[in-house]
Design a protein around this nucleic acid. Structure first.
Length: 307
DNA sequence: TAGATACCTTATAG
DNA sequence: ACTATAAGGTATC
């Protein structure tokens, strides 16, 4: 295994690894100590987190390429990493370590709720996850608790994905589009996916056949990109916004979920315009525009943990 | 085009 | 013990 460490003092705004990984924006990491979402900040503070991505022509993916194991741990002022390859660039990319958090926060409105959330979880970063895994995991997220969404992704990897061995341990790999497309609805229901089972299978089939790919949204203007992603089965406007924000680097995207809807009702009632598109524009503007997605992620994590 | 309803499964509240 | 409700919504009518 390769290994290295990144000096957190050298990052603009530092890092809160646990908040970043366990804030419900990524479901593609695992904690080998088995305590994801245990709500215990102390225990998670120096836990190892592991993921497997694929590297294809220098890009971090899950739909093609060679599997690479990546482990990270925040400890004593450093982000330590271990990997089957020289992975510092992968770690920097996945965890958006080059984002300038103070600059992003400076572009955020001086709003009491936003500042409280930023203060409480300062160092939380958005992620830049592989698009295919993000697409599937957020299709699974509909009407689901965060911990169960994560369990589903683990089950999908263990049931349909490859396995790689590193350092004497084996790691399940998130399934490729082909592997998921070959799954039957019944198999997926057996994993507890419920009505999401056919959505996952059919979307995987769309990607595997080449009929559509989440990456095509990357080159479109924000609202067109959101519309483009809704062509996938099981993907509405909210899930599309999640893929844009957590995988395709649209930092202005604000997924309108139940938590944000409650936030709008309580703190920004004038932003409720009665439909997704218009409410989205209004709350996006209220949260600072360009980095509204950052503010959304802080607020989501803050409200979910403090109330 | 806007509004209502069904949908899998599990955990938690009452 | 047992029922109602809600969980990072979407598809369909």
């Amino acid at each position: 295994m390769n290994a290295g460490r990144i000096d957190i003092a050298g990052l603009d705004g530092g890092l809160d690894l646990q908040a970043t990984i366990e804030s419900g924006q990524s479901y593609l990491w695992r904690r080998p100590d088995g305590n994801m979402y245990d709500g215990d900040q102390q225990r998670g503070g120096d836990a190892w987190y592991e993921t497997v991505v694929r590297i294809d022509d220098g890009e971090i993916r899950l739909d093609a390429g060679d599997p690479v194991v990546v482990r990270v741990r925040q400890d004593d002022g450093f982000l330590r990493w271990e990997s089957t390859t020289d992975a510092e660039w992968i770690v920097r990319s996945l965890l958006r370590l080059d984002d300038d958090l103070p600059a992003i926060r400076a572009a955020t409105p001086d709003d009491e709720l936003l500042q409280r959330a930023y203060d409480r979880y300062w160092g939380l970063r958005l992620v830049a996850d592989p698009p295919f895994g993000t697409l599937i995991s957020f299709i699974c997220s509909a009407q689901m608790r965060v911990s169960r969404i994560h369990e589903m992704q683990v089950a999908l990897a263990e049931t349909f994905g490859d396995t790689v061995t590193a350092g004497g341990r084996s790691y399940p790999v998130f399934p490729t589009p082909e592997q998921l497309a070959a799954a039957t609805e019944s198999q997926l229901r057996d994993l507890g996916l419920g009505y999401r089972a056919p959505y996952v299978q059919r979307t995987a089939e769309m990607v595997a056949s080449g009929d559509a790919h989440p990456d095509t949204a990357r080159d479109l203007p924000y609202e067109d990109a959101r519309e483009d992603l809704t062509q996938f089965v099981g993907v509405g406007e909210k899930v599309a916004d999640c893929v844009l924000l957590f995988a395709l680097e649209f930092l202005e995207a604000v997924p309108l979920d139940t938590w944000i809807q409650t936030t709008i009702d309580e703190y920004y009632p004038d932003c409720d315009r009665g439909n997704y598109a218009e409410t989205s524009r209004a709350i996006r503007e209220r949260l600072g525009g360009e980095y509204a997605g950052y503010a959304q992620t802080y607020v989501f994590h803050y409200l979910r943990n403090e109330e």
